[in-house]
Nucleic acid binder design. Structure first.
Length: 729
DNA sequence: CATAACGGGCGC
DNA sequence: ATAGGCGCCCGTTATG
């Protein structure tokens, strides 16, 4: 029944609707026209791909429209429903074909005799591909349900189910102990795709996987950091011409491997190691031309895999009481600020819904109106901070944002990520997570609701939740001025080299070069703060390293772009060696399309560097300029990451020789150790040596600052620690 | 009700 | 010729 309050607008809408319907009835859209319309919509890549597949399948008569809908206009929604139908059809067909066409040397191992035979065959192998199938991706909670092996000499690919729901199979513990001579034999190499996961899974069941000599996933990063996808199936499809489907696309997201019938499990799992092995051979062929990268990969990146497993499995302890109390106080502050901001800004808000302070779309016009000035954006640093002194509402907004970010991303969220099995918090460290070779940290792809988190971007306030285990302390050691030392070494710039030779401040030394003033005058003010010269050099340093534009620099220095450009020109005139080095990095990238990290151990491929940009072509200019900036930055960042990784390997090795010593974390230019609280000054000296002597920048000395902590971020110097200890005694 | 893009913000 | 290099994650918004 119609409400009497119905508006004219609604009536008009109805009229338009029926008019459209009449027109459609008069001239039904052809299916080709419908496709034209749907494909020209703004579709996501996934949708576009699916739509094209549906169109082909319909043309081939594989699928068709539901008769009851045939009268209606063919919509994108209907097309995508057809895709689901097509996908199901393909899935069943793919599985049937996979089983039917399975190679004869794919073998299912379900008896003790068969396994004994495999163990016997393994003794003749020098390198074997290994993979585990599991119930999920939590390496501390999920379990192994099967093991696949590819034995290249014997030329067999086997799957050993150990915990599938159905079918005859061996017990997991029995299988693991039968395989133990192989798993523990370091003279038999193991090749895996994403070895960190499998090593951790074996450890989950009290077994090691020793002798891992290759990881096709991390090796692929070394071969091409720009690769679109590093998933085994994608790499096999692309480089081995073996079309491969992911588990999810074959079995659906909800399926677990233990639910898969053994005949299908065999063909899927054995194919995994088959592909891993083939990919390994493919990669070895390509590495022949890259001996320096190969050497680095095998001596640094491969041993590092075990270090990461140690690091991740050790995990963290969080002070939950502290987190709860802190979180409460943050929420109170947020609530108070929200009330005040809402009251101040609501009068300037137009719209039916109440103002949402988290919506910049709503906030920008409201805030602009409130301060009587049109804001270009709501960027805290660039736009809001400079106005905070004049407008209290902006100061409050900045505080509100800081607090909600802190509680939303860190203080309230982290406590929920405790692992149910270990009771600790486990981060993920991805050793090849960046294009330059640095670690990334955070959630794995394909592991939706896991407890993984990014440990590398924890702000000071959140770090305080992390506490040392009982009886231990956290010792943090950084590489002092790591990237500047790296540049001093790579460029040979005398001002920098001299600074580190004499143990002087590098920024002050740059300022001496530039201003001609004495060192003392440009280093620190009597109160310990930076002089304006030193501050300027810090900005200029980042500008040189990152290739900051004169516009951004002008903002940072509070000058005009012209003045900023002039400053940089004059600065570089006073540092000709550094200037020429940066130029040479750019010319090298332009010529070769890549740059080298230290000692040619890694490449950063920059294909855009070879673009010859035409005047007026904004897009190519942007790309070219970006590549020029990356050329120098990648060399510095990448070489520094090599130093960090080499040092991590050394540090982990050393920790194994000491009771209670463990690597606790790493944040780019910093290593953190967990050691017993009764450590000595000599122990600190050992850490200092690990940091400064594991990887040298030629003649440029390394430095380190060391801190002792009970709570992450709340550190004291080594002297303070021992002084306090002596006072207490 | 999913997915992806975006603005913004934390670390180095 | 305006976006400083490398990341990950949050809440909102667009989209069907």
């Amino acid at each position: 029944m119609r409400s009497p309050s119905i508006t004219d607008e609604a009536v008009t809408k109805e009229a338009v609707k029926s008019a459209v319907k009449r027109r459609q009835a008069a001239e039904p859209e052809t299916i080709d026209a419908a496709w034209q319309r749907i494909l020209s919509m703004k579709n996501t890549d996934t949708d576009a791909e699916r739509l094209r597949a549906v169109r082909v399948a319909m043309a081939e008569g594989l699928i068709g429209r539901v008769p009851s809908l045939a009268a209606k206009r063919f919509s994108k929604a209907e097309a995508l429903r057809l895709w689901a139908e097509l996908h199901e059809l393909n899935r069943a067909e793919t599985l049937r074909k996979m089983v039917e066409e399975m190679p004869v040397n794919y073998l299912l191992i379900t008896t003790a005799e068969a396994l004994a035979w495999i163990v016997e065959l393994l003794r003749d192998e020098t390198i074997v591909a290994v993979d585990t199938e599991t119930t999920g991706v939590d390496v501390y909670t999920d379990v192994i349900v099967g093991i696949s092996l590819t034995l290249p000499v014997a030329d067999v690919h086997v799957y050993i189910p150990v915990a599938h729901d159905e079918g005859p199979q061996l017990d997991r513990n029995y299988a693991l102990s039968a395989l133990r001579p192989f798993l523990y034999d370091t003279s038999i190499g193991k090749v895996l795709h994403n070895a960190i996961f499998d090593i951790a899974m074996f450890r989950r069941h009290g077994s090691d996987l020793r002798g891992v000599t290759w990881d096709t996933m991390t090796a692929m990063h070394a071969l091409n950091e720009n690769e679109e996808s590093f998933r085994l199936k994608d790499l096999a499809t692309k480089y081995l011409a073996v079309p491969s489907d992911t588990f999810d696309s074959l079995f659906g997201k909800a399926a677990k491997f233990n639910m898969i019938p053994l005949d299908i499990a065999l063909v899927y799992a054995a194919k995994d190691t088959d592909l891993t092995w083939k990919l390994y051979q493919f990669q070895r062929r390509h590495f022949v031309k890259l001996p320096s990268i190969l050497e680095y990969y095998q001596t640094v990146e491969v041993p590092l895999l075990y270090v990461i497993v140690d690091l991740e499995s050790n995990g963290y302890i969080l002070d939950l009481d502290f987190a709860a109390e802190y979180g409460r106080s943050l929420q109170e502050q947020a609530k108070r600020l929200h009330t005040e901001l809402f009251a101040a800004l609501s009068p300037h808000h137009t719209g039916d819904e109440p103002l949402n302070l988290n919506s910049n779309q709503q906030l920008k016009p409201a805030l602009s109106s409130a301060i009587g000035e049109e804001l270009p954006n709501l960027d805290a640093k660039k736009t809001l901070k400079p106005l905070a002194g004049q407008h209290e509402v902006i100061a409050k907004l900045l505080e509100y944002r800081k607090i909600t970010k802190l509680s939303g991303t860190y203080i309230d969220t982290l406590p929920t990520k405790q692992n149910p099995t270990t009771g600790r918090w486990h981060s993920r460290f991805n050793p090849m997570g960046t294009v330059t070779g640095r670690f990334s940290s955070g959630k794995d792809e394909d592991s939706g609701s896991s407890q993984q988190f990014n440990v590398q971007n924890q702000p000071y306030e959140a770090r305080r939740m992390f506490v040392a285990p009982p009886g231990k302390v956290i010792v943090g050691a950084d590489f002092k001025a790591q990237e500047i030392r790296c540049v001093a070494y790579l460029s040979g710039e005398p001002a920098l080299v001299e600074a580190f030779e004499k143990g002087l401040d590098p920024y002050a030394m740059l300022a001496v070069r530039f201003t001609g003033k004495p060192y003392e005058q440009v280093n620190k003010n009597p109160d310990g703060s930076d002089t304006k010269e030193r501050k300027m050099m810090k900005v200029a340093w980042l500008a040189a390293l990152y290739g900051t534009s004169k516009y951004t620099m002008a903002e940072q220095l509070g000058t005009t772009p012209d003045e900023a450009a002039k400053f940089m020109t004059e600065l570089f005139d006073s540092l000709p060696v550094l200037r020429d080095w940066i130029k040479s990095n750019e010319r090298f990238a332009e010529k070769h399309g890549f740059v080298w990290m230290d000692r040619e151990q890694r490449k950063r491929r920059l294909p855009d560097a070879t673009i010859r940009a035409k005047w007026g072509d904004r897009d190519t200019f942007r790309k070219k300029n970006r590549a020029m900036r990356q050329a120098t930055n990648a060399r510095v960042q990448g070489s520094s990451s090599i130093q960090t990784k080499v040092t991590m390997n050394e540090a982990d090795d050393y920790c194994k020789s000491r009771d209670g010593w463990r690597l606790w974390g790493s944040v780019h230019d910093e290593l953190l150790f967990e050691i017993p609280e009764d450590f000595t000054r000599n122990d600190i000296e050992v850490i200092r040596k690990l940091m400064t002597e594991s990887y040298a920048w030629g003649d440029v000395k390394n430095g380190t600052d060391i801190e002792v902590m009970r709570r992450w971020g709340e550190g004291m110097s080594v002297d303070e620690w021992f002084n306090a200890k002596e006072r207490a005694a």
